[in-house]
Each structure stands twice: as structure tokens, then as C-alpha cells.
Design a protein around this nucleic acid. Structure first.
Lengths: 199, 199, 199, 199
DNA sequence: TATGAATGAGTGTTCATTCAT
DNA sequence: GATGAATGAACACTCATTCAT
């Protein structure tokens, strides 16, 4: 029974991964149920054994990839490091995903996470901005960041910077090589280290 | 004939503005051609007098509103102010648009900026980033910004910050009141003033 | 007033000739009112001053070109020549039109005259087959053609031969040079001369 | 699986036959996709399972019925009969189709043969003319037909005669009873027997 | 006469979803 | 589980015709 469940789970994952690839290639709205099924090598009818609807596939594809990132960010939050180090790690998590899972970035980070429709339906899947805000708040409390820094705005700016860098890679405006990733992390931290500290 | 042309231009604009409102309200994909026509108070067939397709309406709506912002940003670039002041003005132009034309921001942020397909077709979207990059380069040349700041990355981060702030307002995660706009401008400049200067 | 009428008539003819060219180029169903107006160099609204509908243009284009051919065929019928000579002249009239008015052949002979819709609406515009049938009947009466030749069938075959030859030119399967036209006339008459005479 | 394929093929044929009936009744352009589906007793969406477009249905309907005739004509060509007998059989094949499949003739004669656009795309329509030309050439080689008979022109005339006879039945200008068919065959052969032999 | 903006009925096609096998 | 045939709601777009100017 455990094996059964595992086999079922594997097939589910097969479809989900196929969905991510297809979304990455064609975009959210242009992807058809048949495209996903074809990419997964199954009949499109089978999709409805594992998911209730096309939208459900989207949501699951998002949720299950996104949650991995969220967990890692949460681990950072609980690490006890300085706020600056925590921000550095958060940036690293998000930016380096581009190297290992570019399709996930293309789809989950850039498309689904920003789609108003999905956004509204998946309330619990808030973006890492809140985590960043909490980090900033703690940094402010410890005096690491200056007292008059608005945590929510700072978090938004920080995340926006990361997101826009990822976008430049997704759109091919910048190469997104490992060196680029390293440079992006460095520049971002250079800016906010002093920018958030205020001097 | 001049009057004729003007009347025609007005009707075109009427449809375009209606489209922006509808897209802002329902999103591009959920907006039917008939919705736009109804909002504009014309028959849906008339839309095809002025535009080749629904897609073209979105592009035109973007281009014709975006170009106004681009011109204002260009004026800032030519103002001869310090790089920091120029960045402040660019941020103000983009962020304050939310106060005067929230629907335009809604459409640009949600429908254009999030859709890789559209973005590829409309190179114009990256124009502000390029302007910012030039400003940063000049600031670096004058010693206003530190020498080891990567202008392209800095520009990407700066623009990303603005974009994410607008997104938070569009998605209703933050209110976007005039005070919020002022606070956003201030915080953003606080961060990059020292962050870009490096001390 | 006479001049007025003439000017009016000229404009009408202008549109009609444009219609023939457009039909020849794009085919009956693919031709739009706007195409005809553009070809004629007038606004498409003007078309409705001269004709009641698009169909009316088609009908008029057909009628006014077709009637010329019918009159010439009628003249042949009244010429008092032998049936064989009359057939030769009918064939010449139809086949040589290709040399002078290929568009008329393309449209009127091949498309409109065979279109069931138009055919039914324009009852009085019967094809020359009936004229040919009468010629055959007279040839039979004079003993020129054999007595057991069915005139209606003979006429149909004769006209069909002409029509198919024109088709081969229209479709470019044969060149349709003046020499081709001459050869076609000769071969057709060679066949029916003895074929209709029966020996 | 063989049964499955057969069932699928049957459904496809069901739709195709329905299409032929509808096209024959209303003409291609006046036939709506929904009409065909209704005639076939299926949902209109199913049509697109079996065909790419309405156009493709017409083409398939033509091709799959036409190919039967082409095969039979080819069999005649290989029969070793005299050229005259072969021509008689070709005429019989084409003309008698009217008795068994009047709708097919209606569609082929009216919609396919009259539409230059379709005809260009479907080279097959000229196949019978080419077969007839080869028969004439052989008849000329054996001395059955006179040496100065142009085979291409003769074939065109012969086929044109058949086509025009079918047209007269399709358009209701002649009844097209079995007797009419027999008379048509007889008259056509009477004419070309001596017409092609030249004496 | 002449223009071309405006109308709106009409239709081919797509595609998520269902369900018999 | 797995397949893919079958369904039908939904929608962008066309184009003949009208009419104010």
C-alpha cells in the first residue's frame, strides 16, 4: 500500500513537473491541458484523476515548488544569524534557484506568484516578503538597521530587487551565469548593508 | 479635416481608455472584446476600425501611456541635477503615477510586466531601467556613487524596488495612499542614497 | 442632363470593371465590397449609390459582360451560315474572349455562370447552350447533322468542351496563347464536324 | 484495437457522408459547421477531432470519393481494350456516378470543380483528363484515332462534355434519369467515335 | 455625390471537462 | 488506473450594410 501510494505520488509528480516545464516554455495562459499531458507522456484524461481541474494543477505546481523555498527561508529565519546574514541567505536561496531550477523560477517566481488570480486564491502562500519584513524588524530591534527604516517597504524593495534580477535573466537581458548570480548577490548586499544600516 | 482627425483620435482614445479600465478591473484574459466596447459605449465591431486585434489594444494602451512616462524620465536625465536627485525624480514619476492613473499602473504592472510574451514584443518596458543605469553610470563618474557599483545591477535593483512597491498597491497588500507614496519615495531614496554611495 | 447621366454611367462602369478584376483575382466569395471599392478608387459606401447590394454588383457584372457575348452569339444565329460555320463562330466568340478579356472569362464564364446561387437568380441569363442547341437543331433539319443526334446533349457537349478548354487556360494548365486558341478552335471543330455529321 | 480503429474510421466516415449531403443541399459556403454536425448527429466540436477545419472536410470528402473513381479509371486504362472502349468506360464511370451518388457529383461538380482556389490545391481533379489524354495517345498510336488529333485538347473536350452533362443534371436543367444517363453515354460516344477517328 | 465611421448579426474554432470502455 | 472520443460553452473576428456629415 505504501508502494502504491508512492507510485501514485510519483505519477502525480511526473505530471506536475511536466506542467512546470510547459508553463515555463509557453506561459501560463497559453499552456493547454493537452500540452501538459503530452509533456508528461500520459493521456490528458488522466490529469483529472490526480487533479480536479487545470487550475488545480497550476496551484499545485506552484504550491509544491514554492513551499520548498519557503521552508528554506524559514530555516534562515530560525538560524540566529545577524539580520544582514539572514538577508544574504534569503537572496542566495532565491537567486541560486535560477541555477538549479530555471524553469521553476520562470514559472513559479515570475508568473504564478504574480498572477492576480492565483495570488488571490492561494492566500496562505504569501511571498517571502513577509519573512524578509520580519528579518528587517529584528534587525531594527537589535540596532543593526536604522530605527526609521520602514520594514514593510524595505522588505518590498529588497524582494523587488531580487525579483527584477531574476526577470532580467528570465527575459535573457542578462546571462544569468553562476558568476552573474554571485555578482548579483554581492551587489544587492552591498547596497542594503549600508542602505538599511543607514551609514 | 483637422477636426475630423481630432474626432477620430478622440474616439480612438475613448476606446483605449475604456480598455485600460476594463483590463484593470478584470485582467486582460478575462476581458472580452465586448466588455471594452460596452465600457466605451460603442459597438464591438468599431474596435476593429481602430485596432487590428484585442492584443493590439493592449499594446497600444501600454505604449501610449508608457511613452508619456518615458518622456518625463528622459527630461529628468537631461536636467543636469545630481544623480541622486535624478533617481529621486524617476522614482517619483513612476510611483506617483499610481495616484493619478492607478488603472494604467494596474495594467502595466499586472498584464504587461508579468507577461513574458508581451514583454518580449514590447522592448520599451526596459527603457526606464536603461535610463536609471545611465544615471548610475554618471553618478559613478562624478564620484557621487562608489566606483565598484555595477550600474546595470544597481538599476535593476532600484527599478525592481519601485515595481514591487507598485505591485503591493495593485494587489492591495498596501493601501497606496498619497502618504504611502511619499513614504515609499523616502524609504527608497534613503536606502539607495547611502547604499549606492557606499558610505 | 445627358452628360450627368453619362458621368453617372461611367462611374457605374468603373465600379463594375473593378469588380470583374477583383473577382478574377480573388474569386467570387473571397472578394469583399471594400476590395472592389478600393480597386475602383472610391469609398465603399459609394457602391450602395449605384447598386443595392454586393450581390447586385455581382449580378450586374455578370449580366453586362455576358450580354455582349449573347448578342454576338445571337448575331451568329441570324447569319444564315451553315450550322457548322455557326458553331465555329460561337466557339470563336467564346474562346477568343480569353485573348481580349481574360478577366471576364475567369469570372463570368467560369465562376458566376456556374454558381448555383447566381444561376438560379438570373433565369433569363441562360447559357449559350440553348443557342447552340438551336443551331444543332437547324443543322439536323437541313441534313447537315445526322438525324439521331440529340440536340440538347450535343449542345451540352460542345459547350462543355469550350468551357473546359477555357478552364485549362484559367488554371494555367495550358498557356492560352493566340496559337493555343487557334488550335483549340480547329480541334474542336474537327471533332464535331464529323462527330455531329456522323460520317 | 482493430475494432477501435474501425469504430473511429466509421465515425469519421459518418461525418464525411453527412458533410457531402449538407454541401450538396446548401453549397459549401452556406453550410455551417453546425449543420454538418447536426446532420451527422454529433456535437460540432467533434468535427475538429477528425478534421482540422471546415475546408479540410471538403477536401477529404472530395479526395476520398474521388479516389474511388480514379482507381476505376486506372483499371480501365490497364484493361487492354481498344481506345474507344476505354473512353466509353471512362464516360460510363463518371456519368453513372450520378445515379449512385448524386450528392457526391453535386459537390464535386459545383463546389470543387467550380472553385479555382480549391482546384489549385487539389491537383487530383485533372487526373481523369490526363488518363483520357493517355488513352487518346494510345488510340492515335494504334491508328484508331487520326494522327493529327491533339491528345490534350481532345481529352479536355471529352472531359468537358462529361462535366457539362453532369452539370446540367446537377442544376436540374435535365432530369438525369437512368435513361438520360444511357442517352448521354451514347451521344457522347457517337460524337467522339467518328470525331476522334476523323472519318 | 461622396465619404468612412459605426453597427451587429453571424460563424469557425478552441479547449477544459466528462465518461464509456 | 488509463485512454481518448465526445461534448458544448465561450469568444475573437469579419464584413455587408447604414447613415451622419
Amino acid at each position: 500500500m505504501g508502494e502504491r501510494a508512492t507510485a501514485t505520488e510519483e505519477k502525480r509528480r511526473l505530471i506536475l513537473d511536466a506542467a512546470v516545464r510547459v508553463f515555463a516554455r509557453k506561459g501560463y495562459h497559453a499552456s493547454r491541458v493537452g500540452d501538459i499531458a503530452e509533456e508528461a507522456g500520459v493521456a490528458h484524461g488522466l490529469l483529472y484523476h490526480y487533479f480536479d481541474s487545470k487550475d488545480e494543477v497550476l496551484e499545485a505546481a506552484f504550491r509544491e515548488n514554492w513551499s520548498v523555498l519557503l521552508e528554506r527561508i524559514q530555516a534562515v529565519e530560525e538560524s540566529g544569524e545577524s539580520a544582514r546574514e539572514q538577508l544574504r541567505h534569503v537572496a542566495a536561496i532565491l537567486l541560486r534557484t535560477w541555477l538549479h531550477q530555471p524553469d521553476v523560477v520562470r514559472v513559479v517566481v515570475r508568473e504564478i506568484a504574480r498572477s492576480p488570480e492565483v495570488q488571490q486564491r492561494i492566500g496562505e502562500l504569501v511571498k517571502p516578503i513577509e519573512a524578509i519584513r520580519r528579518i528587517v524588524e529584528r534587525g531594527r530591534a537589535t540596532g543593526e538597521f536604522r530605527a526609521d527604516l520602514d520594514p514593510a517597504l524595505a522588505a518590498t524593495i529588497f524582494y523587488g530587487g531580487i525579483d527584477e534580477i531574476l526577470t532580467s535573466w528570465v527575459l535573457g537581458q542578462a546571462a544569468g551565469t553562476p558568476d552573474d548570480v554571485a555578482a548579483a548577490e554581492r551587489t544587492l548586499m552591498d547596497v542594503v548593508s549600508v542602505g538599511f544600516a543607514g551609514r
